[in-house]
């Protein structure tokens, strides 16, 4: 059986979901038997490959770069997973959403021409941090801030065996 082509992506999030993924510990060996990590902050390739079976996306869509990347990924990945609360609900990055973008940037960088206000060396900040499904269709949702390694495994393991994950209520909680 060919190994599943899995990618992970990091948008507007704290990388906690990726840290939790690494917490799979020895289960990573079983993961590696079944899957190949073709793109991720944890591996070298810089270009998102064409045919990805499963992509786990951590983080909200916070700026124009995330937006373009997400639209590209949606074309290239079969199963797109909102990985963790920021991807599912906006979560912590969405704390800024009730406040105008200009005010947020000026509070952080000062009143003079803060980066992110317009397209420049850093991408333009979107008016609001969006959950993934506000931008593209999302196939599966894995809540948690971060989802624990056990929860990630309960979700990933069926996927690695060609099944659709169905988490029990206790493993579906936000927060």
């Amino acid at each position: 059986m060919p190994r599943l082509r899995v990618a992970t992506v990091w948008f507007s999030g704290c990388s906690g979901c990726h840290m939790s993924f690494l917490d799979l510990d020895e289960r990573l060996l079983e993961f590696a038997e079944r899957a190949e990590l073709v793109f991720s902050p944890l591996v070298d390739p810089k270009e998102f490959p064409d045919d990805v079976d499963v992509v786990l996306i951590e983080g909200a869509v916070g700026n124009t770069e995330h937006l373009h990347t997400l639209l590209e990924i949606r074309k290239k990945a079969k199963v797109l997973v909102a990985f963790g609360d920021c991807a599912v609900t906006g979560n912590v990055p969405s704390l800024r959403n009730p406040i105008p973008r200009e005010e947020v940037l000026q509070a952080v960088y000062g009143p003079e021409d803060p980066p992110g206000l317009e397209e420049g060396e850093v991408p333009k900040l979107l008016p609001q941090a969006l959950p993934l499904h506000a931008v593209v269709p999302v196939d599966l949702f894995l809540p948690g801030c971060p989802p624990s390694a056990d929860r990630i495994w309960a979700f990933l393991r069926p996927l690695l065996h060609g099944q659709t994950p169905a988490l029990p209520a206790s493993e579906r909680k936000f927060g």
């Binding site: 909102a82 609360d85 599912v88 609900t89 906006g90 979560n91 912590v92 969405s94 704390l95 959403n97 009730p98 959950p131 499904h133 999302v138 949702f141 809540p143 801030c145 209520a169 206790s170 579906r172 909680k173 936000f174 927060g175």
Partner: peptide, 27 residues
């Protein structure tokens, strides 16, 4: 604005529990 990870009731909330029970995996 429900941001469970940033809430005093995270883990002890009837609304959060109902969402999990009723299978609300996203809004």
């Amino acid at each position: 604005n429900h941001i469970c990870a940033f809430c005093v009731s995270n883990g002890h909330c009837e609304l959060q529990d109902l969402a999990a029970e009723l299978g609300m995996d996203h809004v």
